[in-house]
Design a protein around this nucleic acid. Structure first.
Length: 452
RNA sequence: CGGGGCGUAGCGCAGCCUGGUAGCGCGCCUGUUUUGGGUACAGGAGGUCGUGAGUUCGAAUCUCGCCGCCCCGACCA
């Protein structure tokens, strides 16, 4: 993408309304524009990141054997009356009437709707296990939205629902989700720690929240520092292998890690040596629940077992806050100059800065570089504006592309360009070809592939 | 919802107390200049002062209503 033809409305000054780094940088980098309290337009740069995250989530869900679909944002009130949540959910649910006076709501979650779909089409244990998910906009009419997309009212979320014949199968689904989530966050360059949590309005017995450690987190967390050394890495996982999946969950849930809601100081002290006890703040970026027959029973989602018995299906639900993650990633990856995107989620793989726009040789070198990166499947943002070097560097730092290639007459005279890491600030001179080669290597592990 | 604050040019703000129909910085446009970290100079465009009513000869400024936004708290993916 040539910056001169892109839409990147960056702000030089800090917007008054933005309190925390992610909100400030998202506004300054031209990623979002607020339309109402807690409701944002996603401008091109922000949209690219959102799509990258969405794609990673899809890839990891499909890898775990879960099936993508799409449910509507508007739901009929009657469905929620069946589960009893129409009255329970309270003011947080946005209620609407259509022209005929029919009561509807902008869905804050989809347990009722997915259960309705299930009961309409599934009757036998032979169709289980089944896990369906979608990534869709949700709405929760927060009393007080704040922190930009971290706590908006409208938000983009992956929510998945598993249907299983009994408790044991449902727990495997739960474990499978935990592992798939660990891998999802890891690919996004995040360390998200599963912590034992409270179930809240979704209800249920087993539940873990995933928290990203960040100073601006809304929850206080307590954990054994050993947990932050755990890495999934590139181990191959068979999601149908109950023992393997449970083993990975054990690895991550054995070290103490809880939010203030479930924290127990006595247990913390007994289980964790003092030098490994940590307290910090965390941003919740996902949660998994097992809730058994909470919805299937009142809504009549029954299946026939092998022995001919009709039983309510065991369910769980699992969410990842995709739009919130954009903010969480920035909270965990920024400095005073702007964002520092992890390679897995960056909106462009590299930035090209032309230091002498209009100079035939520099222009040609930049064009060749741009084409060369494209040929290797890498997306560059080429700053071809008539701007001074300082302005171009400042923009690149702000929008946080992890790699920058600087092209100027001085370097070209020596036959080199400069490759700079946004994270370390270190630069290295090399030929344009070598820079392309290097970037191709760097991004080799971060290539997404369309999954469905 | 309780408490606090704000709404003046695209963004950040001053002006309001002590009414006389707007100003600064950044950004934008033009020209010159500069050219490896937001260059300098000159010229220029751009404002229903959130909105409605009231007071007044006269309201951005005073009074009341409404709308919107932000912060703290309770609440929350």
């Amino acid at each position: 993408m040539r910056l001169s033809r892109y839409f990147l409305p960056v702000l030089k000054e800090n917007p008054a309304d933005a309190q925390i780094a992610s909100h400030r940088f998202m506004l300054r980098a031209g990623m979002i524009k607020q339309q109402q309290a807690g409701i944002y337009s996603w401008l091109p740069l922000g949209f690219r990141v959102l799509r990258k995250l969405e794609n990673i989530v899809h890839e990891e869900q499909v890898r775990a054997g879960h099936i993508p679909m799409l449910m509507p944002t508007l739901q009929p009130a009657d469905l929620w009356r069946e589960s009893g949540r129409y009255d329970d959910y309270g003011e947080e649910m946005l209620r609407i009437k259509d022209r005929h006076g029919r009561e509807m709501l902008y869905g804050p979650t989809n347990e009722e709707m997915i259960t309705d779909i299930f009961r309409a089409h599934v009757n036998s244990y032979k169709d289980l296990p089944l896990t369906l998910y979608h990534i869709q906009w949700k709405f929760r009419d927060e009393i007080r939205p704040r922190f930009g997309v971290m706590r908006g009212r409208e938000f983009f979320m992956k929510d998945g629902y598993n249907f299983d014949i009994d408790y044991e199968h449902a727990i495997h689904a739960y474990n499978r989700h935990m592992v798939s989530y660990l891998r999802t966050y890891e690919r996004m360059g995040l360390q998200a720690i599963p912590m034992r949590a409270d179930s809240g309005p979704i209800g249920g017995d087993d539940t873990h929240e995933f928290l990203v450690l960040a100073e601006t987190g809304e929850s206080e967390v307590f954990y054994d520092s050993a947990i932050t050394d755990l890495k999934l890495g590139d181990r191959v996982i068979d999601y149908d292998d109950w023992d393997e999946v449970a083993g990975i969950c054990r690895e991550w849930t054995t070290p103490y890690a809880r939010t203030d809601e479930t924290h127990d100081e006595a247990v913390f002290a007994a289980e964790v040596p003092e030098e490994r006890r940590r307290s910090a703040r965390g941003i919740e970026v996902g949660q998994i629940f097992y809730f058994g027959t909470k919805y299937s029973e009142p809504m009549g989602a029954m299946v026939t077992t092998e022995s001919g018995e009709r039983v309510p299906v065991h369910m769980g639900s699992h969410g990842i806050g995709v739009s919130r993650l954009v903010g969480a990633i920035i909270e965990a990856n920024h400095d005073e100059n702007g964002i520092i995107w992890p390679e897995g989620v960056t909106p462009f793989h590299a930035g090209i800065v032309n230091l002498r726009q209009g100079d035939a040789a520099t222009d040609a070198a930049c064009e060749a570089l741009y084409a060369g990166l494209k040929a290797r499947g890498l997306e560059a943002l080429y700053d071809d504006r008539e701007e001074r070097a300082g302005a171009k560097f400042a923009t690149m730092d702000l929008i946080g592309l992890p790699w920058r290639i600087t092209v100027g007459p001085r370097g070209l005279a020596k036959g080199v360009v400069e490759l700079t890491s946004r994270r370390s600030g270190e630069s290295e001179e090399m030929s344009a070809e070598a820079a392309i080669e290097r970037l191709a290597e760097i991004y080799a592990p971060h290539r997404g592939t369309p999954v469905f």
